[in-house]
Design a protein around this nucleic acid. Structure first.
Lengths: 196, 196
DNA sequence: ACATCTATTTAGCGGTCGCTATATATTTTT
DNA sequence: AAAAATATATAGCGACCGCTAAATAGATGT
């Protein structure tokens, strides 16, 4: 009876694992990425993944958080107080479009699309994370003289959803940018002119 | 040894089966509805389903076709030649919104959302079916004096996607209708005024 | 050197997925 | 009445799903 000798990989980098998972989840969506896919991509086996992250959903959550930190639009830079709100929000549409269509994989907004996952846990995680960005936009609109802040906010968020969804279908940056600019024109009469 | 006698349901109504499947698929999406769910809802067992429809995907296709026939917007009524194109398209947004938010289940556009399924076959079927509606809208825009028909068409379809997606999240008819009306305002300068 | 602890390994759990081979019940045709 | 065609039933296929118990290799602390 020969003794069985088992080799072992060194411990893997958890943060890098999150980054790789972010790529997979963003590319294919929560439901379409299996634990086996994640394990292959990270070069580990399932129990290592569960020891490190707890569950597929928690890994997805960490991946989304990383996405928000590293890939997300710098809302504070875009929604600057020195340009008219209509212009700033149009700029938001255009910048979002550019980001949603920049890469061949990684299309659309990972969080926005995550809110449409089949898995309820993943959906709730995405919705929770999306609240942050939505509130920044809602606050900006409220504080910059929108005549009906709630409606304008709904319109802006709805448009961002449309842009993200359209980006996922593979539309080019150019075509989608025109959509973004057109969408901005709807905002023209929605803000009080703040006299300087 | 007693002879085993097996009872049998009478043959089921294929068309009614398609209608029931339409309800399930629209409510939960292609990927989230399993063959077992369909069988339970139709009151049959799997081999009957396959004998009648061939595959889950083909049943989905028939369900979508039924949706287009029975539930879809009457584009010809909405895009009438007797109102200004901006008004007709705004009406399209509003009518779409009403339809997308009318029922608690069955939210959004079944075909539009089908295009985002994880299953490639289902996605392609939905995309193929969506072409019909898209072309009607594109033709209308082209033939009614749009300055840049392709861009306006992109904008309209993108907005419909946003409305459908937002409807799926559960937003009320009222809030979404305001979005639809705002979206229509972006179209104001995009059509040449056709002198009477 | 030894014990402890952490992260990996093998192996496999129960469940669901879409789907089907085969047999039998019922209807239709002859 | 018998034969052929049709639609149901039982039973179960192989593949994948997310996840885990138990064992062991390697790092760390004393």
């Amino acid at each position: 009876m020969e003794t069985k000798i088992r080799k072992r990989r060194p411990a893997f980098d958890r943060e890098e694992g999150v980054a790789i998972a972010k790529g997979l989840f963003h590319e294919r969506g929560y439901d379409a990425v299996g634990v086996a896919d994640l394990c292959d991509a990270l070069g580990i086996v399932a129990p290592s993944l569960y020891a490190a992250y707890g569950s597929k959903a928690e890994l997805f959550n960490r991946a989304m958080k990383r996405y928000v930190e590293t890939d997300f639009l710098p809302l504070d830079d875009i929604l600057t107080p020195d340009s008219r709100p209509e212009e700033a929000l149009t700029k938001l549409f255009v910048r979002a479009t550019e980001q949603y269509t920049r890469h061949d994989k990684w299309k659309g907004c990972m969080v926005t699309e995550g809110m449409r996952a089949d898995d309820e846990t993943a959906r709730n995680m995405a919705a929770e994370l999306a609240k942050g960005g939505s509130e920044i936009i809602a606050n900006y609109i409220r504080e910059h003289g929108a005549k009906d802040p709630e409606r304008v906010t709904d319109y802006v968020l709805m448009t961002l959803r449309g842009l993200s969804s359209y980006a996922c279908l593979g539309y080019t940056t150019e075509r989608l940018t025109h959509c973004a600019e057109m969408a901005g024109r709807a905002l023209e009469d929605d803000f009080r002119t703040l006299a300087a």
